[in-house]
């Protein structure tokens, strides 16, 4: 009896040793077709910004005759890793990813590298992982543009107060935080003081509440910068509800150029926003993907971080009609 157990254990052990494999190692899935298959994993399709990005990426890919596979991370880092790895398992030739959590890119890139799949990151951030390239909006530069505009507009409004406020995104959005950092650096250079820097957790409801608190504490605040448009437009609404004007009294600036911001700017309900161009960024990632597949060396704006910048643009009443 004992020997039977020992034999079974030995056999089991041998099977186990033989069967040990690493999920980060290449599996034998090859997509047999000649058509290039691009996998696109996106942060969350319920946001306008990413809907535009997906459209731009898809159109550029199909224009090249590529097959396009979409994966929605639904704002979940677990889904991000699982889904992106699944795309690689399904045999995509190149992966484009707009990561919900840049710091979770590691396992994805590990698997991609094992299969020789290039990875292009679209916006948000790179998490320090060895992607092939990242297309990034100049977040800090955008914050700077906002500050320059705000300083100018405050002067035009004839306000003497040197106090401004800054509403940040949720604490875990470390790359979006660069917007507020860029804003703060430039506005302080222009001689202003950021008297309140509070988090609206990236939500419109909280941006509204936070702005009301800011107004109560600093009734003389001359301008407020918000890390995204939902909060920016909400803050502008709070300003209006307090009887002030979001352009002429308190210069409210958002970020993203979401449709609600564009509508608000046209109606003088928001002073300005900073436009990224997610569709163009998507197209740019496809271009980079093509180059990576052809093994052409890529040119970077910031070679150390393999960053390719997509310029941002300040949108205010003057140029709002140029926005698509």
């Amino acid at each position: 009896m004992k020997s039977k157990i020992l034999v079974s254990l030995a056999v089991a052990g041998a099977l186990v040793m033989a069967g040990c494999s690493d999920s980060n190692a290449p599996s034998d899935n090859q997509s047999g077709s000649d058509k290039v298959v691009v996998g696109f994993s996106v942060y969350d399709m319920q946001y306008e910004f990413f809907q535009k990005m997906e459209k731009g990426t898809r159109e550029a890919a199909t224009a090249k005759g590529w097959e396009f596979k979409l994966h929605d991370e639904k704002s979940d880092e677990n889904e991000m890793v699982t889904g992106a790895q699944a795309l690689i398992d399904q045999g995509v030739d190149v992966l484009i990813i707009s990561p919900f959590k840049p710091s979770a890119l590691g396992p994805i890139i590990a698997k991609a590298k094992a299969k020789g799949v290039p990875v292009i990151v679209d916006d948000i951030g790179g998490g320090g992982a060895p992607y092939d390239a990242i297309v990034i909006s100049d977040n800090a530069g955008g914050g700077k543009l906002a500050a320059e505009y705000m300083a100018k507009q405050i002067a035009a409004n004839g306000k003497t107060s040197k106090n401004v406020a800054s509403i940040t995104c949720e604490p875990s959005a470390v790359y979006a935080a660069r917007r507020n950092a860029g804003f703060k650096a430039e506005i302080e250079k222009q001689g202003f003081k950021v008297v309140a820097e509070l988090s609206g957790n990236s939500k419109a409801e909280e941006g509204y509440k936070v702005m009301k608190d800011i107004l109560a504490k600093n009734p003389d605040v001359a301008g407020v910068f918000s890390c995204n448009d939902p909060m920016g437009v909400a803050a502008a609404n709070a300003v209006k509800d307090a009887g002030k004007d979001p352009v002429k009294d308190i210069v409210t600036v958002g970020f993203n150029a979401d449709p609600e911001a564009i509508t608000a700017i046209k109606a003088n309900g928001l002073a300005a926003t900073v436009a990224q161009d997610p569709a163009a960024m998507g197209a740019l990632t496809v271009k980079l993907a093509d180059q990576a597949l052809a093994k052409t060396p890529l040119t970077f704006d910031n070679a150390a971080e393999r960053e390719v910048y997509n310029p941002v643009q300040l949108i205010s009443k003057e140029n709002v009609d140029t926005v698509k």
């Binding site: 980060n24 710091s103 998490g127």
Partner: peptide, 23 residues
Amino acid sequence: GPKTLPYDQIGSPFVKIGGLNVA
């Protein structure tokens, strides 16, 4: 910023817990 496993640790036994397959 978030705490992350550095990419160069990919070979470490800790990472293998998540990635390895047994039989």
